[in-house]
Design a protein around this nucleic acid. Structure first.
Lengths: 221, 221
DNA sequence: GTTCTTACTGACACTAATGTATATAACTTT
DNA sequence: AAAGTTATATACATTAGTGTCAGTAAGAAC
């Protein structure tokens, strides 16, 4: 009836992207799927349909489903690092903590980064992260930057190093957790929820700042 | 050659549990798999092999894979609620915050609850939790209990309600995040990691306590 | 234009996982 | 002890999702 390999009846009009653009479009679609659906929502066929290509094309660009996932990981961590470092580098404003937390929270939530990280943590229980990326030293570096900043401000006592890194860790962890579970734990309904969440973040930022600068008080019993 | 349905050659020696025990054993095995492997590690066949049964037996008890998962959810949230409420009910000790956080952290980590919750959050982006369980009101209740306790202690100013609930929320979120990402963010190596993590929790507990009791300081700019 | 590279496609093979159907055996009840 | 209940088993059907293969066409280089 019809030649299976060459359906010359209707011209098959393909769009041909550059490899770079194709990869980006595929990654975007995959990230969106991961954000909206669950972890099992990364199906090559569905992603392909979103982009408007056939699923073998994804394999062509990333080698395998696993390759796609690793590329997702790498890109996400890169984005977060860039954001954080950017804020810290230019941050002399007194509200830098709030800004930092807002920025990280934004990346976590809007870009679906929190979900991606969570998914990654679930997949590889005790593994090291994607190739060459080193979160502990990232936290370490951020801690140093903050410690330097806090030390610069007059009248504030810089904490010992571990305290600073604890604070950074708490900020990261809390932002992450809030992006994942915030809606679940917040009593607020839809219209006000966003405002409440902002208040929560501001409160958290202030708490962290106090923890970093106020004199230690071991006699809390 | 051999009768397929009745291999009467070797007596097939089955163990027959009560439905209740069978369900528990299956849930335990599933939870363990979820803790160790990734979210895709919940395979009926593997769980069945762990328990020592055939996989249709799981379907017999839970209806479907999804039923098993929902049962997992329900049991986990139940466990957490029980733990938290237990600590709060009997908590008059001044170190109750530390104890509470330790307890929750323990449940999160050892029982693999954090992974389960994370997995759940990933699966159902904006959904309500398992049947009839209501985390917001749980947080609400915990907040009230804490507020009452704080109000009882002399010399401490009880914060407004939202502050208390923010603190509870932060505690839950941070404990959750730490259970998932702690190993990733901690610079410590294996032998000392546990100690460091305990220090982190203690620091967090103190920070929260201060945030709940110290006088507000809006002039932080 | 012609040639070359490679992004892209349709059809198919393969695997693995859930769920179904039917039978059996371990307890309980009488 | 006989009958009834149901936890459990084996074998199979079904589906779905990844990856392979050989060929097509879009754009670049000449």
């Amino acid at each position: 009836m019809k030649p299976p390999t060459t359906p010359s009846g209707n011209p098959p009009r393909r769009r041909r992207r550059s490899a770079e653009i194709a990869r980006k479009e595929i990654l975007d679609a995959a990230q969106k799927r991961l954000s909206e659906g669950g972890p099992e929502a990364i199906r090559l066929q569905e992603i392909a349909r979103d982009v408007g290509i056939a699923h073998p094309t994804i394999i062509h660009h990333f080698g395998s489903r696993d390759g796609l996932i690793r590329a997702l990981d790498a890109r996400a961590v890169e984005a977060l690092t860039r954001d954080v470092v950017a804020v810290l580098k230019r941050g002399e404003s007194p509200t830098a903590e709030v800004e930092l937390i807002e920025r990280v929270a934004e990346t976590m939530e809007e870009q679906g980064l929190a979900r991606l990280i969570a998914w990654w943590a679930l997949r590889e229980p005790g593994a090291d992260p994607a190739q060459g990326i080193d979160p502990p030293s990232l936290v370490e570096n951020i801690s140093k930057l903050i410690a330097a900043r806090v030390g610069d401000e007059p009248g504030l006592v810089a904490r010992e190093h571990e305290t600073v890194s604890f604070a950074v860790r708490l900020a990261v962890i809390a932002t992450f957790g809030d992006a994942l579970l915030g809606d679940l734990l917040s009593p607020a309904e839809e219209p006000e929820r966003e405002a409440e969440r902002r208040r929560f973040r501001a409160w958290m930022a202030r708490l962290l700042r106090e923890g970093l600068t106020a004199p230690e008080d071991p006699s809390t019993s």
